[in-house]
Design a protein around this nucleic acid. Structure first.
Lengths: 421, 421
DNA sequence: ACAGTTTCCCGTAAATGC
DNA sequence: TGCATTTACGGGAAACTG
């Protein structure tokens, strides 16, 4: 027999931005034996959270609603809160919310739902709450928030461990790599293959990468900067995810972007290939950049590798990546420019691979000569979450109480914000 | 003897966007004979405005402040309201704000300031109000708002004629052209010359343009679409102002943009010039576009004119206009591309004119080959305001009352919003 | 001074109202 | 349905705050 207290839709931790609307829904899983009045539900943010230590927020808009019979289903009571908005509580006295122990995206918050009704002269309190929530104030904090949500989901099944990031556990590389690949398959449609993951593992762990149960700390994953770089591993990876989502989706989903390849491997792969063979790789030195490297055979038999300055979102929004590949030209010594890109590694003729992805030429505004941009280089040398139900003080027989307690329970049905998947 | 009730800084009508902060300041021009308590000033938006007919707004934030002695000046009392924000009043009953007679940018509103104090047992009311204000809810309404402000300033000296656009007067072309030129000189630094204005006059008035006292209606200026175009004269002109402000300032201020030239005049000017002579002109068919036209002498002696598809803000933010001129290439029959732009009309060698304005090449990210965008065409044929002071009911001698009334007066000192000049 | 964080607000897109 | 207007909110930049 199923547990009536289990929610039907397991709830993932979410990210909520202050001042931006979100929605949530609670459902009472069983019919109440006798409720002849309207059942009011109240949502409270950061209920029971002691002030200090972390920031606190409150719900700006109306937070009380009456439950209704769900129209489509089994007649359960449910209520959906829409247009909820969060605002930070400001304390007049010097008390500061965030005390520097945790960054704001490591703070975990929660949304509580309460209702109270009387049956057989007894007052019953119902209460449930969401899985942990990360609250941000600007989209620039979204990557940090995502990192927290990923780490929490990966490493705990606890429904409400708000202190998780006080001492976050480590993840094994095998766990982490699966999650990273999942990020790409969820958001872009195409996950990461073994080679790509192995490059990422090496980047994060160095020589330990081969050992799949080597552990990665939370700090190394998303807080510490990569040595010599002004960003952390996750910030770098997330910038690439964003680049793919906005500018590279078709190319990525065709598997034409090798993406995560070290420069050494790149050279090994290209060196025996036809001149003009190229591959696409993400920049390791800059956030959200993609470049291509092609191989060239010089007159003296020497093999030479060239990489173009990485394209970032600004450039890609002026000119789609496939068109860049189609039109790219190198001018050596001011002579006839030539497109050095011939074969996508290993040996697919460029137009065969990218032909379908090329854009139409710009619309002809009639009296005008159409113009488009060309990229050119001047060659330098030529869960399921359990719920907590608060026990009422029972002035009824233990049997009666147990019966009620078993059947009455809030269910946080769904909750959405623009930042949920 | 000067009038104490005149404000020191005449107040121009302004545009305020709902939800966006603005600031205002009122000053009492003379010292009060005896005020031994704090003088509170209250601001009210749309005071005395009857509901219906136009939208109504209220000040979201605290609207009462106490006057202070001005620190720097003559010891007058003044008060500055900061962080004021407007929100529309919504009526539960069907009453709609804007009734369709006027568009929202034609509605004029006003901000009132009131204070009240007692002297010699008499209660004195002080009141003043701003010049008309246009309230918008989105920056997309800014051009419409500017049009209203310009027309109001041009055609009336009344301090508070909120019904102005109920029956707006016409402007003579000589008045209007002066204002238009002033827009360019204020916002861009360089006004319009006689030839440019004459093209604009012809565009707006047709053959009447020669007659400088020909009158232009408000509707023709900013409400009716230009025949055959989906935008009004002012919307078109304002889109060009914006383009100049954001992307063409240096080129505009060097006077290198002829800009407003009819195609006929353009041809007349270019036809006897050296091949490769070009001029820069704003698009008349699209909002916010600039193109160049160059003259070419064909083998058979025929003179040919070519214009490139106009560049809009999106393209110009990928590549600055001066660089477009430097790098522009036409490919005929897939042969060696050539830059057809040689001399800026009348005969300035291109690099001499634009050399200083060219951008540096993109920063060299060292292991990479720098790449930049090139605009390319494939040749198709290969071939000061008075104040109103409300009279108090006078239980004092007429002489006493007159004395006070003469010397006590609010002064709306300054008022600023992000949309004021 | 500075870094982490929030606020501000434009500009685009979507929603709303008539 | 289409147009006018408002709302929503991402994203860059400025302001804030210890």
């Amino acid at each position: 027999e199923k547990q009536p207290c289990m929610p039907t839709h397991p709830q993932k931790p979410l990210i909520i931005k202050t001042g931006v609307q979100f929605t949530t829904k609670v459902r009472l899983l069983v019919k109440l034996p006798e409720v002849d009045y309207q059942l009011k539900v109240k949502t409270t943010f950061d209920k029971d959270l002691p002030p200090g230590r972390v920031r606190q927020f409150f719900i700006l808009t109306n937070n009380t609603k009456v439950m209704d019979i769900e129209d489509y289903s089994n007649g359960c009571l449910s209520v959906e809160f829409r247009h909820l908005q969060l605002k930070e509580k400001k304390y007049i006295n010097g008390t500061k919310g965030n005390e520097g122990l945790l960054s704001v995206t490591e703070e975990l918050h929660s949304l509580s739902f309460e209702a109270c009704f009387t049956v057989q002269g007894l007052t019953i309190d119902l209460e449930t709450c969401s899985l942990p929530l990360v609250v941000i104030s600007n989209v620039s904090q979204l990557p940090g928030g995502w990192a927290s949500v990923m780490w929490y989901n990966l490493l705990t099944d606890e429904p409400r461990n708000l202190a998780f990031f006080g001492n976050p556990p480590r993840a094994t590389w095998s766990q982490l790599s699966e999650v990273l690949s999942w990020q790409f398959s969820t958001f872009a449609g195409q996950g990461l293959n073994k080679d790509q993951l192995s490059m990422l593992g090496e980047k994060l762990l160095g020589q330990h990468a081969s050992c799949s149960d080597y552990q990665v700390s939370w700090s190394k994953f998303s807080k510490e900067n990569i040595p010599g770089k002004p960003f952390s591993f996750w910030m770098w990876l997330d910038s690439i995810l964003e680049l793919i989502k906005k500018h590279l989706l078709p190319v990525w989903n065709e598997n034409y972007i090798m993406g995560f390849v070290s420069k050494e491997t790149e050279r090994t792969l290209l060196k025996d290939r036809e001149p003009g063979t190229f591959l696409l790789r993400f920049s390791e030195s800059h956030l959200g950049g993609i470049t291509f490297t092609w191989v060239e055979h010089k007159d003296n038999g020497e093999v030479k590798f060239n990489s173009v300055e990485p394209y970032t979102k600004n450039r890609l929004s002026a000119l789609p990546f496939a068109d860049i590949i189609r039109d790219y030209k190198v001018i050596s010594d001011g002579v006839v420019p030539e497109n050095p890109l011939k074969f996508l590694y290993p040996d697919i003729p460029k137009d065969e691979a990218f032909g379908r992805l090329y854009n139409c030429q710009p619309s002809k505004v009639h009296p005008y000569i159409p113009s488009h941009l060309i990229p050119i280089s001047v060659h330098p040398d030529a869960s399921s979450s359990p719920l907590s139900c608060r026990s009422p003080e029972p002035p009824m027989t233990p049997g009666e109480f147990n019966m009620l307690n078993e059947h009455l329970c809030f269910d946080l049905d769904t909750m959405s914000s623009p930042y949920s998947d």
